[in-house]
Lab assay of single mutants.
Amino acid sequence: MQRVNMIMAESPGLITICLLGYLLSAECTVFLDHENANKILNRPKRYNSGKLEEFVQGNLERECMEEKCSFEEAREVFENTERTTEFWKQYVDGDQCESNPCLNGGSCKDDINSYECWCPFGFEGKNCELDVTCNIKNGRCEQFCKNSADNKVVCSCTEGYRLAENQKSCEPAVPFPCGRVSVSQTSKLTRAETVFPDVDYVNSTEAETILDNITQSTQSFNDFTRVVGGEDAKPGQFPWQVVLNGKVDAFCGGSIVNEKWIVTAAHCVETGVKITVVAGEHNIEETEHTEQKRNVIRIIPHHNYNAAINKYNHDIALLELDEPLVLNSYVTPICIADKEYTNIFLKFGSGYVSGWGRVFHKGRSALVLQYLRVPLVDRATCLRSTKFTIYNNMFCAGFHEGGRDSCQGDSGGPHVTEVEGTSFLTGIISWGEECAMKGKYGIYTKVSRYVNWIKEKTKLT
């Protein structure tokens, strides 16, 4: 034993070699072989497995989906700052455009905790909710729209109204504003409101030439003092309507412009014939205590009207009353817009006519005020429907199939267009061939041609 100890002390290297040989010859039971080890760690190889990531292109799944990435790591994937920024906006807080917040056709661009709407022409605001041009839906104005110097929408209202708090709607500024039905039992019968379409306001006024200088022999019209197929109006439903009495009662109609003036057809009036105007009328054979009678003290036909040349060209006249009318729910003026808007309103496509005229061709006159909704007829169809001249200051309205029309005794009465609950004068009943005849239409004086003249002559002093 002493000898062994001496050998170990003198030859430590020998001992180490012996131990190493023993270990190498022993069977290893701690580690699995290569094949079995792979069965336990069965993990798919990654895209760049075996390579240094710093030297390969980034992978979106590896960089940002398996674990949260930084902007720089995302930049490695896209290799483009702009594309990385677009991805980053949604990656950080989701897609803010998912709810489609942009209105009126706006395009949404996502941002971090926010979004941006790219608005089409005519709109602005956070969600493109603000109209900035009158060309689109009248700028959301209830009545009139004008573009300011910086191309912003400025709404306005006709006389007797003021802008509401929203700067879009119009509200009454006087007790009985024009064009409004205020009798409670008839307010439910107000005709369907007309909503502004998209309009090209630059070209809204037709490029028409008034044929002022045409000389033409007097034409022989049949029954051209021209509501057939209409309905009984309720008291106060058309408070701007008046009836004219002269040699015979209810020979023509008219509309209240203001307390002192009536507008009617020029062919209705004769110099030297006494005319009485009755406002607030409903049943011409009954006294309903809503009527107001006034005498006409002055007749002003349009300066281009000449019955000797043509009885229905420039067929418009103004009547001055001896005493002002007292405005109330049964006696209310009709609204008159400017030339541009009167023309736009007419193009809405349908209007209402009213009167006490004959209820059928050569038949009896109506006792109760009649009204009828009539569609506008395109000019080409209008011209083809008659052998008589249709001037540019006239328009056609009615039904091709016949059966409904204005008729004798309705002449001078109103053709009105309702705009968001307020009625505007767009025409004056003038003439036609018979009444409600198939293929024939009622012919009306186009008020847009005469609004400046009306307003100039009827100013209240």
Rank of each mutant, 00 (worst) to 15 (best):
V377F: 02
G398N: 03
Y312C: 04
N42H: 11
A337E: 01
P44M: 14
R373I: 05
F360E: 15
E142A: 07
E66M: 05
N310G: 07
I300Y: 06
N80T: 15
T186M: 12
L189D: 12
N127F: 05
K45G: 14
E142N: 04
G21D: 03
T81D: 09
N135L: 07
E10M: 12
G272F: 06
F176V: 08
L325R: 00
N343C: 03
K347D: 08
G355H: 13
E165S: 11
P235Q: 08
P172I: 05
E159N: 08
I429V: 09
N313D: 07
F251I: 11
Y330A: 08
T85V: 07
L32Y: 15
R75I: 15
E124I: 05
L23S: 03
D249G: 10
L52T: 15
R3C: 13
G125F: 00
F348G: 13
M437A: 15
S49M: 11
L369D: 03
P177Y: 00
P197A: 13
V153I: 09
N135V: 06
E401I: 11
K311Q: 05
L425V: 00
Q185I: 11
I210M: 09
E285M: 08
V273T: 12
R226E: 15
K51C: 04
N147H: 11
N36G: 11
E434R: 06
P12N: 11
E259S: 09
V183D: 08
I336R: 01
I275M: 07
V257A: 03
R298N: 12
T422L: 05
E10N: 15
D110E: 06
T29D: 11
L327C: 04
D93M: 05
R364W: 05
G94I: 09
N203Q: 09
E285G: 07
T290G: 06
M394A: 08
F224R: 10
R46W: 08
K68T: 15
S187Q: 10
L20G: 02
V377E: 02
L369H: 14
E98N: 10
Q143R: 00
D33V: 11
D111P: 02
K51N: 15
K455F: 06
V277P: 00
E401V: 08
S411Q: 14
D131Y: 12
R43K: 10
F395M: 01
E116L: 11
E420N: 09
V419A: 05
V419I: 13
Q219A: 12
D95Q: 05
D322Y: 02
F424N: 00
G442T: 14
F176K: 04
T426N: 01
E86T: 15
C157L: 01
L211F: 13
C155N: 00
S70V: 09
L211A: 13
G357Y: 14
T16L: 14
A308R: 13
F238P: 03
A26Y: 06
T287I: 13
S49D: 15
F399L: 11
S430I: 12
R364K: 14
R83A: 15
W118T: 15
T186R: 11
E54M: 10
E10R: 04
V227E: 12
C396Y: 00
L14G: 04
V77E: 07
G272R: 11
M8H: 12
T190H: 13
T426E: 01
N258R: 02
F196S: 12
